[in-house]
């Protein structure tokens, strides 16, 4: 399917010192730390519960110290949003006591739960859909799947191919609005994942503002976004399409029909806007392409 790249060296460094020699992080996908509970390491196939590694509050603090490079005060906004991205592209979800002001989360404190999601980019996972993307010319494309089926991973690989050029096609200027730091996994503004030689990334920015900024500032040919779902997202996307940029985005949906039922999206999925759709599932493996649809030319390709 593709070459999986793991960057686990950084993960060992951010673990509390007393656990580093006792835990095996090979093939891990998630590391869970919960106060007064054992450390848990999840892989694709198994869950390892380290009963001799009971997490204390000090361990959470120590982990955050290392993850924030001894500068937790500089991650206040990230903590408020519930995650921070470290070198290597790994994301640490944080959960604690929330302070609400004006019905919005102002701050999180007393962090007691960490979910370390191990970054893994699968290089080449979008090879099978690139021909479909280029067929008849690049068009606005949506990638649809239920949660956890590899939309973001495939989107990332598509971005790299479009940016670098693929199959004799010239590379394009790609701009990415990485609202949740999941696509490029920027650490201090530097993408930790491969993004291609012609790709610009705006990190941790709402899609609507990010799209407008990129169109004004970076002169992109293609704009990529993740998880389109709100009316503001849809509005910004229509604005971007009108400027002549090709849009590539992802949506939570099991099928094109289901996506069209979403009132925010149904007007976007049409021959004049998002005319190409790639639908994923995890029946065989994560990121399995169920079918591709070209609404303009009324083509449907099954089981690529």
């Amino acid at each position: 399917m593709g070459q999986i790249q793991h960057h686990i060296t950084e993960l060992y460094r951010i673990l509390p010192e007393r656990f580093r020699d006792r835990v095996n992080l090979q093939e891990s996908t998630e590391i869970r730390m919960r106060v007064r509970q054992p450390l848990i390491v999840e892989t694709n196939t198994k869950e390892y519960v380290y009963t001799d590694c009971i997490i204390q509050k000090e361990d959470i603090q120590e982990c955050l110290q290392y993850a924030s490079e001894y500068s937790i005060y500089a991650f206040q906004e990230n903590i408020r949003q519930g995650f921070l991205t470290i070198q290597g592209g790994h994301r640490i979800g944080v959960c604690g006591q929330v302070i609400i002001q004006n019905q919005k989360i102002q701050l999180q404190q007393n962090i007691s739960f960490l979910n370390i999601r191990v970054a893994h980019e699968i290089i080449g996972c979008a090879d099978e859909v690139m021909s479909f993307l280029y067929e008849g010319g690049l068009a606005h494309t949506l990638i649809l799947s239920p949660p956890g089926c590899g939309k973001t991973t495939i989107l990332r690989d598509i971005i790299v191919h479009l940016s670098n050029g693929w199959g004799g096609h010239a590379g394009k200027r790609v701009a990415v609005v990485d609202e949740r730091s999941e696509i490029a996994a920027c650490h201090q503004g530097v993408p930790q994942n491969q993004m291609g030689i012609r790709t610009d990334v705006i990190d941790n920015c709402p899609k609507a503002e990010g799209i407008r900024l990129l169109v004004r500032a970076m002169n992109p040919e293609i704009i990529a976004v993740d998880e389109i779902g709100t009316a503001q997202d849809a509005e910004a996307i229509v604005y971007s399409i009108r400027t002549g940029c090709v849009m590539i985005g992802t949506v939570h949906a099991e099928s094109v029909a289901q996506a069209q039922e979403n009132p925010m999206l149904h007007h976007l999925i049409s021959p004049s806007l998002f005319s190409k759709c790639i639908v994923l599932d995890d029946t065989k493996e994560k990121g399995h392409v169920q079918y591709c649809v070209d609404l303009k030319h009324k083509n449907r390709t099954e089981n690529i």
Binding site: Q61, L64, Q65, S68, Y70, I72, Y73, A74, Q76, I79, L107, Q108, Q109
Partner: peptide
């Protein structure tokens, strides 16, 4: 000094 979640407190 405990690590504070905002720069002003730190």
């Amino acid at each position: 000094i405990p690590f504070c979640l905002d720069g002003a407190a730190q």
